[in-house]
Amino acid sequence: MNIIVRKYEEKYLEEMIKIWNEVVETGIAFPQMETLSLNSAKNFFDEQTYTAIAIDEEKSEVLGLYILHPNNVGRCGHICNSSYAVKKDCRGLHIGEKLVIDSLEQGKKYGFRIIRFNAVVASNIHARNLYERLGFKQLGVIPEGFLMKDGHYEDICPYYREL
């Protein structure tokens, strides 16, 4: 398996939608509640500062993706935000790590100085361990900041890292 991370191409939209929607439908990580369609996905991914895919070059199969965009505007426009999605049956292969590392490089390339994650769900231990291993610092806890799919609220942990 030869996994590389690169800018997304429209020909991979269907695979990307499937991976993104899988995370949205699970309802335990992304704040979005609406899934993407072919039309909305193209607009959504094109609106980002950068959208990347992790692809197995040997099979030409998308295994994950991320979006990178400003976290805010104006005087806080130097802070970016990113969201990551990995195909369910490919988790544990360090694809998420490759995506995060690439997003750090792209964030810097696009002139951002800080990357911040607003809503990392407290129970998302794998993501939190990865972020901390890569030098992110937790900013605190927002009690009951995330509405889980089953209707209960869970704490979120904002993270940041200088680029």
Rank of each mutant, 00 (worst) to 15 (best):
M1K: 09
M1V: 14
N2L: 08
N2V: 10
I3F: 02
I3Y: 06
I4S: 04
R6A: 07
K7G: 15
K7P: 14
K7Y: 04
K7T: 15
E9D: 11
E9P: 11
E10M: 04
Y12P: 01
L13I: 14
E15V: 02
K18H: 04
I19K: 01
I19W: 00
W20T: 00
N21Y: 06
V23G: 07
V23I: 11
T26F: 09
T26E: 15
A29Y: 05
P31W: 09
Q32G: 09
Q32K: 11
E34K: 12
L36P: 15
S37K: 06
L38F: 10
L38I: 12
N39I: 13
S40H: 06
A41T: 03
F45S: 00
D46M: 15
Q48K: 13
T49H: 03
Y50E: 10
A54C: 08
I55R: 13
D56H: 07
E57P: 00
E58H: 09
E58W: 05
K59E: 10
S60A: 12
V62E: 00
L63R: 13
G64W: 02
G64E: 08
Y66P: 05
Y66N: 13
I67K: 07
L68V: 03
L68K: 04
H69M: 07
N71K: 00
N72E: 11
V73S: 10
V73L: 08
G74R: 09
R75T: 03
G77I: 01
I79E: 06
I79V: 13
I79W: 12
C80E: 01
C80L: 05
S82I: 03
S83W: 11
S83I: 06
V86C: 04
V86R: 04
K87P: 11
K88L: 14
K88G: 05
D89P: 02
H94R: 10
H94K: 08
H94M: 09
I95W: 06
G96F: 02
K98A: 05
L99E: 01
I101D: 05
D102C: 10
S103K: 05
S103G: 14
L104Y: 02
Q106G: 00
G107E: 01
G107T: 04
K109P: 07
Y110M: 07
Y110H: 14
F112E: 09
R113M: 11
R113C: 08
R116G: 08
V120Y: 01
V120A: 00
V121E: 00
S123D: 02
N124E: 09
A127N: 04
R128K: 15
Y131W: 02
E132I: 13
E132L: 07
L134H: 08
L134P: 06
G135M: 03
G135L: 00
F136Y: 07
K137N: 13
Q138N: 12
L139D: 10
G140F: 01
G140N: 02
V141Q: 14
V141I: 15
I142C: 08
E144R: 13
G145S: 05
L147Q: 14
L147P: 07
G151Q: 08
G151W: 08
H152I: 15
Y153Q: 08
Y153T: 09
E154V: 11
D155Q: 04
D155N: 15
D155A: 02
I156V: 13
C157F: 11
Y159T: 12
Y160G: 02
R161C: 15
E162A: 14
E162Q: 15
E162H: 12
L163P: 06
